[in-house]
Design a protein around this nucleic acid. Structure first.
Lengths: 229, 229
DNA sequence: GCCTGTGAACAGTTTCACAGCG
DNA sequence: CGCTGTGAAACTGTTCACAGGC
């Protein structure tokens, strides 16, 4: 198969990001090669499923041996488009936004916040994660000036749609939304929703149904891989 | 139909939580009834899919009219098990953990943090979101004393597995993990993973493949995010 | 022997079309 | 009529079993 042509299923893409994280850890600890079984164990997935996921990138292992850790890591990074740093802007620097801006994990995984924005005069000018918080009026200039294509929304729900509109108008093509509202964006703009309350409520349901219905114990499989939203 | 045990698909459960949020907003603005089309629009899903989701709760609409807003909201809340407040514990009060502890959205959606824990002496004793941060040594007593069954992990990756072990040993049955590691838990314990870097990397992939691949690729056909719509 | 890569069976979801009721 | 509820079809994603190369 041609490595780039076939559309990679979104569920596979999400797992590739997990494999990338695990491979990074293995590389740091000096491992040279790894089998699908071991990698699948560390990522919490089925070995056959992992091999099927990787098959979307074309053959990239050695039969009878396994996968080259650094080579596979680089290949996945290239497919995901995180082989070099990508510019992101973040709007809303309340508790959650500040936590995101200050989260070192992003920088080491190919994302750099090139602009932090808030509407509150009290927050404008503060330095968070090494960057100053700017006024919303500068959003357009920064997005066009840095060619940022990824935007993160961590505002209150009431203003999230308006921010989404401004981001897309400025040229942002991909949005990660933490506000608990369903955003509407123009065609061609991807929106991913992370709703923390939804996650907790799914847990609450599992919790409730485990106690209420004492049918056979829930599935014996242990790890959980990122789901929806 | 039997209201308790007709095995609701997990994808449906996640959407029920979204409908619940939308219905809450509608109820607050005084709406008495709503059609599947309108509710689906506000939730960002397909109307037929929404009706199928609701069909798992048994008939709960009026044909030719729509759904009773407050009635449907209460019914979904009951099914999800959030009709009354549930006790949660939170471990790790760095930036993200503090944001979670201080997030008012949880309290209004049926979750109450009954214990905040950290290992750092500098954080122990601080009051965050109205609650004092406790030492990890008190974790077991608080979990058993409050009968908390839900735990949230917002620690660094290195200690997340150990915290997971302690939570499950203390009796926690459901875990929401923000640390970028795949946790292993005993059978019967549900773990949900929220990995912010994974979310961004999926966006990066969509972003990259939207523009014609510079690699070897040429085709840039990309599926839309989100399930139905 | 080992382990990867993959077609084929399987399971779960989404969509469609329409029956059924107010 | 309109809108809900639902079986059946279409689709996507997952698991299995084994073929194929090291």
């Amino acid at each position: 198969m041609n490595p780039s042509r076939p559309r990679i299923p979104e569920a596979t893409v999400a797992r590739l990001a997990v494999y990338l994280r695990v491979l990074g850890g293995l590389a740091d600890s000096g491992r040279a090669s790894v089998s699908s079984g071991e990698l699948a164990g560390a990522a919490g997935v089925n070995p056959a499923g992992l091999r099927k996921d990787l098959s979307h990138l074309g053959p990239c292992g050695v039969r009878g041996v396994g996968y080259d850790v650094a080579g596979l890591r680089d290949r996945i990074a290239r497919v995901l488009g995180v082989e070099r740093s990508r510019a992101c802007v973040l709007v809303g620097l309340g508790n959650l936004g500040s936590a995101l801006a200050d989260y070192a994990g992003f920088g080491s995984r190919g994302f750099e916040f090139v602009g932090l924005f808030d509407s509150s005069p009290q927050r404008i000018g503060q330095v968070i994660g090494g960057r100053p918080v700017l006024a919303l009026t500068e959003l357009d200039d920064v997005v066009t000036g840095t060619a940022a294509t990824i935007g993160v929304i961590a505002t209150p729900a009431e203003v999230a749609q308006e921010i989404c509109d401004r981001l897309t108008a400025a040229g942002v093509r991909s949005i990660l939304n933490f506000a608990p509202v369903t955003l509407t964006a123009p065609a061609g703009v991807d929106v991913r929703q992370v709703d923390l309350s939804v996650e907790l409520q799914v847990l609450a349901f599992l919790d409730t149904s485990r106690d209420a219905g004492r049918d056979t114990g829930s599935d014996a499989r242990v790890p959980a891989v990122g789901g929806m939203a």
